[in-house]
């Protein structure tokens, strides 16, 4: 029988003997564009709009609360907005943006409980094509040689959302398109909304739902959106607000407000949670400023209506063409 040892037989992490707390490795962005004073995202991420050929510099402070000296590797890493998430590329995989980023030092030795400031320079080439690029400035801590053979490497970073293009900054905007009151498979009420990123910058959204004007004048909330989502320009995604079983079915006045940085959008409508096993009611909002309730029956009716309108239109068109033809003759 083969014995495959994954590491040795000890399961405790290496720092277990060293003491309880391994300490933390931290990163902190120190500069933000002066033009983005009101944008909370620009305080924690590098969010900017640059014209080709320009250069920006950002300082980053690295800190360590570890009782041991730490050696940090600094490098830019690729990232993408995919599947409603900001996804980091593994290891040191790069993209176009990472080629433009240089740190003034590639490694930093932090003494115990020490800190250091490093500078990152982002130089956009003149030939850069317009569009938004994503990346992360990583500070990766190398583990000291320990007894284990599986290294646990931790890295912490500052996200970059850089839009390249001449002229002014493209707009950040998103729309809440559908409000859906439904029940999950376990019978718990759920509130969902479909969000469309109608701007030209990526958005990271989260927000709250408030239910008011309920049965007996009840109000409930604010309920927090389950997970924030990130959407690329033009992307569509769904936010979910899980709710409690004891919540009455309604009708409620639901108002969902979502925010990405300083951009806030909200939608409200009257909703009723369906009985268990019933089809959900979809509210379409923001289409020509109206809100339409879609139920299965309603949907069939609407589809029928559209079909009738199309058929009538086609008949009129044919009639018209025939008349003109006759007149020309």
């Amino acid at each position: 029988m083969l014995l495959v040892a994954v590491g040795a037989l000890c399961v405790s992490p290496a720092w277990a003997e060293q003491g309880s707390d391994p300490g933390l490795i931290g990163i902190r962005l120190m500069d933000a564009p002066a033009t983005r004073r009101g944008d909370p995202r620009a305080r924690i991420y590098i969010v900017d709009h640059l014209s080709p050929g320009s250069t920006i510099r950002r300082r980053v402070q690295l800190t360590s609360t570890s009782a041991h000296p730490q050696r940090l590797q600094l490098y830019p890493g690729a990232a993408d907005v995919r599947k409603h998430r900001f996804v980091f590329a593994p290891d040191r995989a790069g993209n176009e943006l990472t080629k433009w980023v240089k740190f003034d030092r590639s490694t930093v030795e932090l003494p115990a409980h020490g800190s250091a400031i490093v500078k990152a320079t982002i130089k956009v080439p003149r030939t850069a094509w317009r569009g938004e690029r994503y990346g992360v400035l990583w500070a990766e801590a190398e583990p000291a040689a320990g007894r284990g053979n599986v290294k646990i490497v931790n890295r912490v970073g500052v996200r970059m959302y850089l839009d390249i293009g001449a002229g002014g900054e493209p707009p950040t905007d998103f729309r809440i398109e559908q409000l859906i009151a439904m029940r999950g498979v376990d019978g718990r009420p759920q509130f969902r909304a479909v969000v469309h990123n109608s701007g030209q910058r990526a958005v990271d959204m989260s927000g709250t739902l408030r239910l008011t004007e309920g049965p007996g004048g009840l109000s409930a909330g604010p309920f927090q959106v389950d997970q924030g989502i990130s959407l690329p320009p033009g992307g569509r995604g769904r936010v979910v607000v899980p709710l409690d079983t004891r919540l009455p079915d309604g009708p409620w006045r639901a108002s969902l407000s979502l925010a990405s940085g300083s951009t806030q959008r909200s939608a409200d409508d009257t909703i009723t949670f369906p009985k268990a096993g019933e089809a959900p009611v979809v509210k379409l909002t923001g289409i020509l400023g109206t809100s339409v309730a879609m139920t299965p029956r309603n949907g069939a009716l609407a589809a029928g209506g559209v079909a009738v309108v199309l058929m009538v239109g086609f008949a009129v068109f044919r009639r018209f063409r025939a008349n003109r033809f006759r007149a020309n003759k």
């Binding site: 290496a14 720092w15 933390l24 490795i25 931290g26 990163i27 570890s66």
Partner: peptide, 8 residues
Amino acid sequence: LSVSAPGT
């Protein structure tokens, strides 16, 4: 933003 120091 901080994360625990690495280990083996």
